[in-house]
Simulated scan of single mutants.
Amino acid sequence: MAGNASEPGATVVSRTMALLGAFDAAHPRLTLTELARRAGLPLATAHRLVGELAKSGALARTDDGDYVVGRRLWDIGLLAPVQTDVREVAAPFLQDLYAATLATVHLAVRDGTEVLYLDRLSGKRSVPVVSRVGSRLPLHATGVGKVLLAYAPEEVRRVVLSSLTRVTPYTITQPARLRTQLTAVLADGYATTVEEMTLGACSVAVPIRRNETDVVAALGIVVPSLRRDKQRLVSALNVAAHGIGRTLNSLA
């Protein structure tokens, strides 16, 4: 949430970005008053800018008067190189994984100290999850997030480990315990969670590498339990991740 958009000298662009930045995974729809408050703008200024954003399709208004991110922003966001390259290459592999498991399949990248979901496949038999395409969730509470955190620069790990929020009763909030898990991810090549982001949902994830070394994304599956099928899922994920990485290399 932006807090300096109302400062003297703030540009129209900075105020507009503050409004757009008011939306996040926990706040996908907001009233005009909430938008103004979260963006740190006077209500009249927010009303004028939100009206212009809605006319351009950057924001959309729901039937009950709330505002949500518009289709125009989503279309533009899909042009970001990390999304177009990785998401398009990974799409058929995600389809294969979903067809083989009927479980929720995730493709994600690290965005600062959060995990950004580029794609998700799920069905009626899949475990309910809170992730959506384009949403951001904590790195430490998700399988794909742990993978990306394990391979992140030390400074990123330090920042994340200094503020481990509890999402469920099973979320790991002890820095030493999480660091031990991250070390295991580097040794084992996969990460797991057990009801750490959503109750009743467990996950396993692996890295996607470009040039055999650079981790550019993570691939994960969410299931009710990992007690019996963990190794089978890890194998399936590794096959898909290797295929995605090999295709990315061929395009470089």
Rank of each mutant, 00 (worst) to 15 (best):
F93Y: 14
V144M: 00
V222N: 07
A80K: 03
R72A: 15
R37G: 12
V185Q: 06
T31M: 09
T213F: 02
Q181L: 13
S14E: 15
S126I: 04
L19K: 10
V147K: 00
S122D: 13
L102D: 14
A252S: 15
F23K: 00
V69E: 01
T180Y: 12
Y67H: 05
T45C: 05
T173C: 09
D75G: 05
L49H: 09
G3H: 15
V147E: 10
A58L: 15
V105G: 02
S126N: 06
R48P: 04
G134R: 00
G200V: 11
T198G: 02
L30W: 14
T180E: 12
A103C: 09
T213E: 03
A36W: 03
A103V: 00
R136P: 10
T171F: 05
S203H: 01
L73A: 13
F23I: 07
K230A: 08
L139D: 04
Q83G: 02
D229C: 06
D188L: 04
L248R: 02
T171R: 00
V13K: 15
L53R: 06
V223S: 06
R87C: 05
D63N: 05
P81H: 05
S14W: 02
P153R: 00
T165I: 07
A187M: 07
L164I: 02
Q95T: 10
R61F: 12
T183D: 15
S126W: 07
G21L: 03
A150Y: 08
S135T: 14
V204R: 00
V223P: 02
F23P: 03
K146R: 13
A218M: 02
D96K: 10
P81F: 05
